[in-house]
Design a protein around this nucleic acid. Structure first.
Lengths: 117, 117
DNA sequence: CCGTTGATCAACTGTTCAGTAGATTACGGA
DNA sequence: TCCGTAATCTACTGAACAGTTGATCAACGG
């Protein structure tokens, strides 16, 4: 799935914070509630709740509603989509190198007058 | 190569802005100067210069010094490193699913008394 | 129904960030 | 040497953001 510009904004913004990345790492090992996620951090519950909202808004996680708790879990599709965007750039970049390589081989085959470095 | 927390911060922060992503897309097709990069945007040269500094600081691009111009080019190693981090999380997540799958098979094999949903 | 727990909402503060304008540096060409 | 061009540095403004405290809501257990 391809993301819009706005979705890419939200996704990379969510990934750009160490607390939020730590939450994702924790969630990669399984579901967790807000309290459980907040426990390792020297932050108020409200602050962690905000981070979770950012992650949820980005689509990187989603949540169930279970009794009083609201367990969070990873949405790997968004991780996939982020990688897809990056790979796209690398692909174009690498294609360009292939062309450069081809060009250099041509130059080698038929020596030309040097123009500018 | 593995990135530190600070480097991941800088890398994902750099990717979190649409102008900066557009600059990266442009650079994936080849080197460009600050003026060339600024041209498509409705921004002052100074603003674009700042974005470029953010990208350079993140390690996603680097620059040569050529006469008056300072051409920028992509550093794909950083793109690779960002993908590596994301893949790491997906791997753990998928491993967990494998375990869950294994667990469910066991449950299916030998019916157990239900504890809690 | 009341107290406890999990979590959010609301208001406020301090900091970071994107953008601007104006001055400045650095290089190359006439 | 003087001018034009490429780019940066500095100082400023307004918006967004991370964090706090205090109040509130919703669900369960006695």
């Amino acid at each position: 799935m391809t993301l819009t510009d706005t979705e890419l904004d939200a996704t990379f913004t969510a990934l750009a914070d160490p607390t939020r990345r730590a939450i994702l790492v924790r969630l990669s090992t399984g579901e967790a509630t807000v309290n459980e996620l907040a426990q390792p951090f020297d932050l108020t519950l409200q602050a962690v709740s905000k981070h979770i909202k950012v992650l949820e808004h980005s689509g990187l996680i989603s949540r169930r509603k279970e009794a009083q708790t609201r367990p969070c879990h990873l949405e790997t599709e968004r991780l996939d989509a982020a990688v897809t965007w990056i790979d796209e750039q690398r692909k174009v970049w690498n294609d360009r190198f292939d062309q450069l390589d081809h060009h250099l081989r041509q130059l080698q085959a038929q020596p030309t007058p040097k123009k500018e470095l």
